[in-house]
Design a binder for these strands. Structure first.
Lengths: 242, 242
DNA sequence: CGCCCCCTCGCAGTTTCTGGGGAGGAGGAT
DNA sequence: ATCCTCCTCCCCAGAAACTGCGAGGGGGCG
């Protein structure tokens, strides 16, 4: 356990962050950040809905494994709460009323995570969702004051950290971005907002068959197996907005 | 047209932002921000998951109407580009190669938007996506220098602005952020990556009927008319990732 | 001038999805 | 202890989507 330090200079932190050359560097940077802020732990944690995740931080490997094995991801109020919020949140303000959540909290404290926490939700393209969290062992008042006075800097640090993480993520292969024709885009958009083929055709004042041709064409261009797949791809590539 | 001003004090800006009491205040605040930064226009623009939009800013009403009527939303490289990016972006770096995009740019300049632009993508819960943009009329070098030196402050301003906008728009989430069960998420994910119901059921080692129940349940929770719609909503709310 | 892409339209047959029922067990929440 | 949600399975009929065969006009480009 350490002591909450004075706020480090933001410029230095971000320069250090921007100089990171890979994921390994980020691990080093986050350790430095932890030391400079003088908190017990600092963690960057990328959450995929399917459970895969990438993260770095100062938690013990034992705790990380335990967390994953026990499926804490599904019941963690930090995850739940941050997923529905935009602003950074003090863990004390989350809903710990359920039994499983309290068990998780107890377990976490026993593993040295600390009794205080502060998490910043971060969202990126394609539904990326990540958390940047700080934990510590101190009184509520101390923690409140610390987080409030460092709030803005931490938001920026989290932002730049995520930017770097996205940069290093190999799975970000920008496709050749096959463009859809205007009509195809309209057709896909209407389907994406719940119209049936017939309704969509009616809306565009064309025959249902013509609409079908657009959808088939879009499906082909997007390499999709069916309409649902095509709409999903168009959405996640940002070709259409719903 | 104005002149790029010196960077205003961030503390003052954010205090002003935090004191906003409603959407009308935000309109006033954004005008003040525009004046303080000395740029031609400053705009906050929200595209929510229903396709409706809310925005405030200093564009002429005429231009906003023209933009909507002509369906520029669907071809605007600013929207497309920011949707696929995490970091703020200078408009000069976007892809203006398509003819319709160039026509839009020409039209925009003729309507006094300015030849330079800078947009910050912002993402919130439930797939919220918003843009905070600045436009101006000046040389590339001037704009580059201005945006680089104000980058961090603008990110924070955009962040706090969005936080306020979210605060004032509780009705933006008609369905109370229903969460899908793990099985439902798995089912939706498989459908989103192109599996048929039969294939998805097989993959999950359950009967097709069971899978169908999940899909129906998800459709209900998401308020979707059909499977494609449900997948689109799950995607744009960030519940699943493809 | 072809060539290619975009837009428009029709028919028929097969497969898949949707919507209405019902039913039981496991586990957590109150 | 009771309620509720989640997970699992079943039948059936009608609606919708997919597959595969066609057709023609318009516009840009080499």
């Amino acid at each position: 356990m350490g002591f909450l330090g004075n706020a480090p200079r933001l410029d230095t932190l971000i320069e250090r962050l921007e100089s990171a050359k890979g994921l390994d560097d980020l691990q080093i940077v986050i350790e430095e950040l932890r030391d400079q802020y003088g908190v017990d732990h600092m963690v960057y944690h990328w959450v995929n809905s399917n459970g895969e995740q990438y993260g770095c931080g100062t938690y013990d490997l034992e705790w990380v494994n335990r967390y994953v094995e026990r499926g804490y991801l599904r019941i963690d109020p930090v995850i739940q709460g941050c997923f529905q919020r935009f602003h950074p949140v003090n863990w004390k303000r989350l809903d710990w009323s359920s039994k499983s959540a309290r068990a998780l909290l107890k377990d976490a404290i026993e593993h040295g995570i600390g009794n205080q926490g502060f998490s910043i939700p971060i969202r990126g393209p394609n539904g990326q969702f990540a958390l940047f969290s700080l934990t510590h062992n101190c009184s509520d008042a101390e923690w409140e004051e610390f987080t409030e006075s460092n709030r803005r800097d931490l938001i920026l640090v989290a932002h730049y950290f995520n930017q770097k993480a996205l940069e290093f993520e190999p799975g970000r292969t920008p496709e050749p971005a096959q463009q859809l024709s205007p009509r195809e885009l309209e057709a896909m958009t209407l389907l994406a907002i719940g119209y049936s083929r017939a309704q969509a055709a009616d809306t565009l004042s064309i025959s249902e068959h013509t609409l079908r041709v657009y959808v088939e064409s879009a499906r082909f261009k997007l390499g999709a197996m069916n309409t649902t797949h095509a709409v999903a791809r168009a959405l996640s590539r940002g070709l259409i907005v719903v």
